[in-house]
Design a protein around this nucleic acid. Structure first.
Length: 601
RNA sequence: GGGGGCGUAGCUCAGUUGGUUAGAGCGCUAGCCUGUCACGCUAGAGGUCGCGGGUUCGAGCCCCGUCGCUCCCGCCA
């Protein structure tokens, strides 16, 4: 017989009754009835009930066992007595009557119980991650993560993608996030950087003629964490394709993402065909470029109803500001003064002056608007508003006014809050969309100049000849240029962003010139890339969905830590391994590094 | 860098208006219990109320500072 086990703790069934077996695992739960003693023995595969009584040679040992001790037990499989089956366990028809117990790994008193689903503080969970990972929820999440990654790999390969490994020790890239630096021993004063993403490598792979690249790629960014943004490191499904348009990328990626979600959604519906929403439309309808489409609320511009109206606050905004607008946020079934006032208080808590509203109620068969806004607006305009928004008895509508540039974020937050409060969001579905047509540039009011809006290396959506002919004075035209850039958004979570890359050095130089970058600067910062593009670069593009976020959504988790095996805390510390840690004097000498601690103040 | 929340037993939490010796559940220790599966029952151990200072006759509670954790903003092409 094997030294540790003949079966796993999830294996035994009625068919095994009578067999002599050997199991190893953790003492999940022990119930000592004096004369009879039960041990729920747990391993990766499941739980099996082990029984001892005073007739058993192992009884004395069994009485000394404690929670989470690792033991080997030998015994005989037998049917549980009539009426004591446990239908909640796959092994619940049988139990192992123990003959011998060997303690393989005793456990001291636990800082955090494994049994049950009690919540525990993050620092304790992280310091004792190996205990937390024994618990069902995390254990299941981590397994699911692996299965999801397997599925992604298989689907990518089926589409003709090939997996590459790109360097981890590489050069710092001046764009984007803060880099993690690694000092060089051989080159005093010089540093490697960990890649923020394999962006340049994957483009070079296309220039190298490989056509379809993918990688489950580690990415490193020294930026502050969020619940949906791991500190330090995370994984992307990084992919790139040659000779493609935006449609080709969508056609390649969408089935992979949809397929993976359908496979792991446990029956929850997944968007059949991802709608494409232009950036501008997303801002206007949802107040964000990562809309949660499970929320049915669609905002609308109702400026014309308020222009010149008796509701002076809004009328004045429209009068004095050319860009001024009033947006409406419909709130189906939100038509009570209590709810509207609550939202108004919430808005004030968010630092807003308030959240104007009208709520509609039936009065002798006629639906009328109520509240201060309605009173000042007048019955006719209120009715026009109600008709435009399709609202009815028991509904409400909220308003934000000013310059959209300034208020759209708050409007989006209000839309989300209202949807949440009114229970309009069906949590048990996955609503996807593509966000497309991102603006290439934006106006920097503070510095009075044109800036890149998102990714400077995306291809502008303009024929090259037309783009190259642009004059710096064509400000309005320049600001209207859209980049061939796109995001996948699911349930309000930005899953990935990608682009058709700018593969033409002349167009890239022009693009940077428009944003005020001297060609020498471009040469200095991105000379290598520019050079490669000048020696025969195919048109190419790609995208990089975040693996951790995909897993988080599919596991129904709100925090990435719940789907990462050994995560760091918010301050980018690994409490279990004790990272980051000071280096020894010898290490620092070899690296030509002297530590200068931050001074007081 | 900024803002909010939290910090009481190993863990989860309660703790009234500032008032006697700071409580409960889980866990731990000991005892009882032959069919439980969150087993049950009895007893016990376990506390610098994050830390420092202040107000007060008296502080877990009020005030100031500080530290830790967390969520958010900045940041993240």
């Amino acid at each position: 017989m094997h030294a540790y086990r003949s079966h796993t703790c999830g294996a035994l069934r009625a068919a095994d009754i009578g067999a002599e077996v050997r199991l190893s695992g953790w003492c999940h739960r022990i119930r000592d009835h004096g004369g009879v003693l039960f041990i729920d023995l747990r391993d990766h595969y499941g739980i099996t009930q082990v029984v001892a009584d005073p007739d058993s040679a192992a009884f004395k040992t069994a009485e000394t066992l404690r929670a989470e001790w690792v033991v080997r037990v030998d015994g005989k499989v037998r049917r549980r007595p009539e009426g004591t089956d446990n239908p909640d366990l796959p092994t619940g028809a049988v139990e192992v009557y123990v003959r011998e117990i060997e303690v393989l790994g005793p456990a001291a008193e636990l800082p955090m119980p494994v049994f049950g689903d009690q919540e525990y503080p993050e620092d304790i969970r992280l310091k004792y991650r190996f205990l937390d990972l024994r618990r069902e929820r995390l254990h299941r999440n981590i397994i699911k993560r692996g299965q999801i990654i397997d599925s992604i790999r298989r689907r990518m390969k089926e589409q003709g993608f090939f997996e590459f490994q790109t360097p981890i020790l590489t050069a710092s890239s001046p764009e984007g996030a803060r880099d993690y630096l690694v000092p060089s021993r051989l080159h005093p004063g010089k540093f490697y950087a960990l890649p923020q993403a394999p962006q340049q490598f994957k483009q070079l792979i296309m220039v190298s003629g490989f056509d379809r690249y993918f990688q489950i790629a580690p990415c490193f960014r020294d930026e502050d964490a969020r619940a949906d943004r791991s500190p330090g490191e995370f994984y992307q499904l990084d992919l790139e394709m040659s000779f493609v348009t935006q449609d080709d990328v969508f056609a390649a990626v969408e089935p992979v993402i949809r397929g993976v979600f359908e496979e792991f959604a446990d029956g929850r519906p997944v968007t059949a065909k991802f709608p494409r929403i232009p950036y501008k439309e997303a801002i206007e309808k949802y107040g964000t470029d990562k809309p949660d489409l499970r929320n049915p609320i669609v905002m609308a511009d109702v400026s014309e109803i308020f222009r010149g109206s008796g509701f002076k606050i809004f009328a004045r905004i429209l009068e004095t500001s050319a860009k001024g607008a009033v947006w409406a946020i419909p709130a189906p079934r939100g038509g009570s003064r209590a709810f509207c006032d609550r939202m108004n208080s919430w808005a004030q808590g968010e630092g807003q002056p308030g959240l104007g509203y009208i709520f509609f109620a039936a009065d002798s068969g006629v639906i009328v608007g109520r509240g201060p806004v309605a009173n000042n607006l007048g019955a006719q305009r209120t009715e026009a508003l109600r008709a435009q928004l399709g609202l009815s008895d028991g509904d409400a509508v909220f308003f934000v006014a000013g310059e959209p540039q300034a208020f759209f974020k708050f409007a989006g937050a209000a839309r989300a809050k209202i949807g949440e409060e009114l229970g309009l969001i069906d949590k048990d579905r996955f609503e996807f969309c593509w966000i497309v047509d991102f603006p290439m540039y934006e106006w920097n009011e503070e510095e009075k100049k044109i800036d890149f809006s998102h990714n400077p290396f995306s291809m502008p959506n303009l024929p090259p000849s037309e783009f190259l002919a642009l004059d710096a004075g064509d400000r309005d035209k320049i600001l209207s240029i859209r980049a061939i850039q796109y995001d996948i958004v699911c349930n309000g979570v930005e899953l990935s962003s990608g682009a058709i890359r700018n593969h033409r050095p002349d167009v890239m130089k022009k693009a940077f010139a428009i944003a005020g970058y001297d060609e020498a600067v471009l040469e200095q910062k991105f000379g290598g890339m520019l050079h490669a593009l000048s020696l025969g670069a195919p048109p190419h593009g790609g995208i990089a969905p975040g693996i951790d976020r995909i897993v988080m959504l599919l596991c129904g988790e709100e925090n990435l830590r719940e789907v990462v095996l050994f995560p760091m805390n918010q301050r980018a510390e690994d409490l279990m391994m004790g990272a980051p840690a000071e280096a020894t004097a010898k290490q620092l000498r070899e690296l030509h590094i002297r530590v200068v601690p931050p001074g007081p103040g």
